[in-house]
Design a binder for these strands. Structure first.
Ligand SMILES: [Zn+2]
Ligand SMILES: [Zn+2]
Ligand SMILES: [Zn+2]
Ligand SMILES: [Zn+2]
Lengths: 132, 132
DNA sequence: TTACACATTGTTATAATATAACAACAATTT
DNA sequence: AAATTGTTGTTATATTATAACAATGTGTAA
């Protein structure tokens, strides 16, 4: 069998739902919402999410255990991700800043490690929450 | 009551154990190991961890749900953290690079957000694992 | 075309991670 | 002392994620 070319039904259902959301979604909230589409068990959602994360359609916000669709067309794989997270309203935005990504992708230290991937999460207050 | 000045007994027990470890520890593994010291329930460990993370004595490796002691004397609070993680052997090292931390602490974009904190995780292969 | 390999699915059960709720106690402030 | 706030212990429960295995699908090659 060849490497999967298209999304499977379950993957497409999960992706569609996550893409419609304006905020990060928890796995069990996705599950609850796609049950009418036939995905009955957590594993069906987690498997779809795993694959979607692997191919860069979805990113995981690690500090929140939540998932967002990638809005950045250049993210073919999830290997260089950066997010801003408002600690008050929990709004999350993917940062698309080529200087930042260049800086981090080229980062080297004297540890002898070769970095192939990074994930950066910035925290603070968004515009709205700052003015409250 | 004044703001806590010293570590409580439980916090000290957890910190001692985490500091002795050369690798990130899971909360339940900490629990198991400090039970002989009297911490019987998950919450006692999680509370201690929460406080220790808050004051910067311990950092959480978000992608691993694990905890490491801070080896960086300048980390008074956990507000600017960077780690390298080997995806093969899971070795984790806190990155202490002033150029990087300066770059990230001063990072601004046009979102109007004020960033007060960040966490960065680099992934790759460590020296050892690269040569296998 | 049929056997094979292997990916994907569905399903049940369970593991691992983390918090809610509340009662008891301790230290500080008024 | 009374009020306030922080810490502790405890039980129960919520949340997040994976193990294990049988069934089904799909491309490959004898
Ligand atoms: Zn992206
Ligand atoms: Zn906000
Ligand atoms: Zn540190
Ligand atoms: Zn390694």
């Amino acid at each position: 069998m060849e490497k999967q070319q298209y999304l499977t039904k379950n993957q497409q259902i999960v992706l569609d739902f996550v893409e419609k959301s304006s905020e990060p979604l928890k796995a069990y909230s996705i599950l609850f919402n796609v049950q009418k589409k036939g995905l009955k068990a957590p594993l069906q959602v987690y498997r779809a999410l795993d694959k979607l994360v692997e191919i860069g359609k979805i990113h995981k916000i690690e500090s929140r255990n939540a998932f967002v669709a990638c809005k950045n067309s250049s993210c073919q794989v999830s290997k260089a991700t950066a997010f801003s997270i408002c600690e008050s309203c929990e709004k999350v935005t993917e940062i698309n800043n080529s200087k930042l990504s260049k800086y981090l992708s080229n980062f080297e230290d004297n540890s002898g490690m070769r970095y192939s991937k990074y994930n950066l999460e910035f925290f603070g207050l968004c515009k709205k929450c700052k003015n409250k």
